[in-house]
Write a protein that binds this DNA or RNA. Structure first.
Length: 662
RNA sequence: GCCCCCUUAGCUCAGACGGCAGAGCACAGCCAUGGUAAGGCUGGGGUCGUCGGUUCGAUUCCGACAGGGGGCUCCA
């Protein structure tokens, strides 16, 4: 008896009853069957040995598809666990999912031992043996009861099974499902060698399908992500559909490493972290400070144009302020410890907002003044835990480009829309073009009235829709006092960074008893919007360095042009060129002819200076320069100086030129 | 804070069974005046992260601490 199935392209195939997916793939083509790792049957991922039913919609999943790679990674995680239990009998293994680019597996070694780096070599070679043995993965199902018995020696597996068994409603947890529990039964995969793991599947049919993987590192990771629970030993690996894809991935990692802002910061002499000052407290060297200043000046100018007023507030305040704001109640652990003086207690500020509120409250406010937009590039101090510090991206003294907007309730939606548009346009002017947003809604633990949350959340969503930015809703991810929008951007090599945040604060106006007099002469409470655009100047600085790999656009470059005389006797003319450029507000350096030309050019280019001008005999004679533009291979000789200036000047302001400077 | 790794010249890194510490780049001086990515010579520069232990002797072995890196947790 034959049955018929529908393939991904819509065509129908007739196959014998009892045919498996793999047999179907083989029937379609040798290449397809070789590349197949699983199948999607009626929308669900299944093993290749699944038997087909009449009318099934079948899509063969190949190793180079997203689904396929995920299956390869998950299967590779299994043989990682198998290798570890082979090498350390009695190991407890917890979970081992696929993740972006790879997989991990969490273990608890007998005797509370820890992995060291050399162990990865041993484990990897055991994994290669398992691959070469061509072990099969076979699925079977167990009742909860039998499953608990099967994993009698595996407390973490038992906990997964028990949690879900006790709370079937919790079965919508993806991780539990990936681990193979649901619907009152569990599924396990058993290798031909006898290794068994709890798993939903699917898996590749044979370990021989695996092999393009590499173990990357060992790390500690808390069981279920809870720092109160045991810390397990996590091994990270990467796995791909082919050795070529694996190699490309490793090259991409190297590229990313070259862009590391900490490395670039050192190479270009921009900033460093003196241990004598303390972790997370950078000093900016002259060139780095100049870049910062350009960023900040640009930002201030744009804010003034957009109707903001600049504020300036001190770095410390009495405890009273943070008692009113609530920071001492909620976030004391995140604040630097206090200083005592003349009987009062002072704290370094962890945020600027309470001080901006005091500016608002310095006198009565009329509805005619709203929206009142205050802006400050203000440095705040937060006691980040030592383990989380990361270059400029996560510091303890950070400078927020912070604004607080106070508006009437009926102005909220319009103001948020305007704000989001402003944020996007500024980010674009820094040469960033791909954005995504997240709308974070009310968390379970939160304060405030429903109608306020609803109003604020709706206004945020309205702004997102108006701006046209793509977004997703992160349910329950908001701050406990406010819903928010987080803007993420993608950098030149596709990494996502969170930058701007907009929050509609439902608490502060009340805590500080803020009000304004409305047109009907009644006192009303304003809404308050918190917003950081760069996030922090330091973090945004890091993002720009990594995005541009240090080759900043002309307007942000600390040195825009270097002028090199070929010989010493060209120096007077070279200095004339320097003066001319300085008259056009170009940041220009002169490099004396005390080294060979080649090495001076090399130095200027490794400093990533956008334009290197070389002047020699012909230039002196005819008033020209030899232009070396960053990124172009050949010099542009005999360019009249006035022509070069005319070409350069439009690039000096912070406006995008729409060109890639990579 | 927790797990793993690292710490030798300003930078990138060698090094030895435990027996006077090495290179390249950078820096300084002299020479070389060179039209497009490293010119030559000479020189200075180190308590081998800190403290303690083992040892006749420790930069090397052991321990603690500090700083850095990769993760986990956290990020108002």
């Amino acid at each position: 008896m034959d049955i018929s199935v529908v393939l991904a392209d819509g065509s129908e195939r007739t196959v014998p009853f009892g045919f498996t997916v793999f047999q179907l793939a083989a029937m379609i083509g040798k290449r397809l069957s070789e590349d197949s790792v699983a199948a999607r049957i009626n929308g669900t991922l299944r093993d290749l040995d699944s038997v087909l039913s009449d009318g099934d919609q079948v899509e063969i999943v190949t190793r180079n598809s997203d689904d396929g790679r995920q299956i390869l990674r998950h299967s590779t995680a299994h043989i990682l666990a198998q290798a570890v239990t082979d090498l350390w009998p009695g190991t407890h293994f917890a979970i081992g999912p696929s993740i972006a680019d790879g997989f991990y597996y969490d273990f608890e070694l007998p005797g509370a031992k820890h992995f060291v780096d050399e162990d990865l070599v041993k484990i990897e070679s055991r994994m290669r043996e398992i691959v070469n043995e061509g072990q099969s993965f076979a699925r079977s199902e167990y009742s909860i009861h039998d499953g608990l018995e099967l994993f009698a020696d595996q407390p973490y597996k038992r906990e997964i099974i028990e949690t879900v068994a006790n709370n079937l409603a919790g079965a919508d947890d993806d991780e539990e499902l990936e681990e193979g529990v649901g619907d009152g039964s569990i599924s396990v995969y058993r290798n031909s060698s006898g290794f068994v793991d709890l798993c939903k599947g699917p898996h590749v049919p044979s370990t021989r399908k695996l092999g393009s993987f590499k173990l990357m590192r060992v790390a500690g990771a808390y069981w279920r992500g809870d720092e109160k629970r045991p810390q397990l030993q996590r091994i990270y690996g990467t796995a791909w559909e082919s050795d070529k894809a694996l190699k490309e991935h490793l090259v991409r990692l190297e590229e990313a490493e070259k862009r590391d802002h900490r490395k670039i910061g050192l190479e270009l002499d921009l900033f460093h972290f003196p241990p004598e000052i303390g972790g997370g407290l950078p000093v900016f060297h002259p060139k780095g400070a100049l870049i910062r200043q350009i960023m900040e000046d640009y930002s201030k100018r744009e804010h003034r144009k957009a109707g903001y007023q600049l504020a300036w507030t001190p770095h410390i305040a009495k405890s009273t302020l943070f008692e009113i704001s609530g920071h001492l109640g909620w976030y004391k652990a995140g604040m630097y410890p206090p200083m005592e003086m003349e009987g009062a207690t002072y704290y370094p500020k962890p945020m600027n907002c309470p001080m901006h509120i005091l500016i608002y409250k310095s006198r009565g406010r009329s509805y005619k003044e709203l929206p009142l937009r205050l802006f400050e590039i203000g440095t705040v101090y937060r006691f980040e835990r030592s383990g989380v510090l990361h270059g400029l991206a996560r510091v303890r003294g950070l400078t927020q480009d912070d604004s607080h907007i106070f508006c009437a309730p009926d102005q909220l939606a319009r103001e948020l829309t305007r704000l989001l548009g402003f944020i996007i346009s500024i980010l674009k002017n820094f040469g960033l073009s791909e954005f995504e947003a997240e709308l974070a809604t009310r968390p379970e633990k939160s304060v405030g009235e429903d109608f306020e949350w609803d109003h604020a959340t709706a206004a945020l969503e309205h702004a997102l829709k108006e701006s046209g930015i793509s977004y997703k809703v992160a349910h329950g991810e908001g701050a406990f006092y406010a819903p928010k929008i987080d803007v993420h951007l993608k950098d030149a090599i596709g990494r996502r960074w969170q930058v701007s945040t907009l929050q509609v604060d439902l608490q502060m106006p009340q805590r500080f008893d803020m009000e304004f007099v409305d047109s009907d002469n009644t006192r009303k409470r304003p809404y308050m919007i918190h917003r950081a655009l760069f996030g922090s100047v330091e973090r945004f600085f890091a993002i720009l360095l990594e995005h541009y790999a240090g080759a900043l656009p002309v307007w942000l470059s600390p040195v825009q042009v270097v002028v090199l005389p070929v010989r010493d006797d060209h120096s007077p003319y070279a200095r004339h060129v320097v003066r001319e450029l300085e008259n056009s507000d170009v940041r220009v350096d002169f490099m004396a002819a005390d080294e060979p030309l080649g090495s001076r050019i090399r130095k200027a280019k490794t400093d990533k200076v956008p334009y290197v001008l070389v002047v020699g005999d012909t230039d002196v004679a005819s008033g020209t320069v030899g232009v070396n533009e960053r990124g172009s291979k050949d010099p542009d000789r005999d360019v009249p100086l006035s022509e070069f200036v005319a070409r350069l000047v439009p690039q000096l302001s912070g406006q995008p030129l729409g060109e890639s400077l990579d």
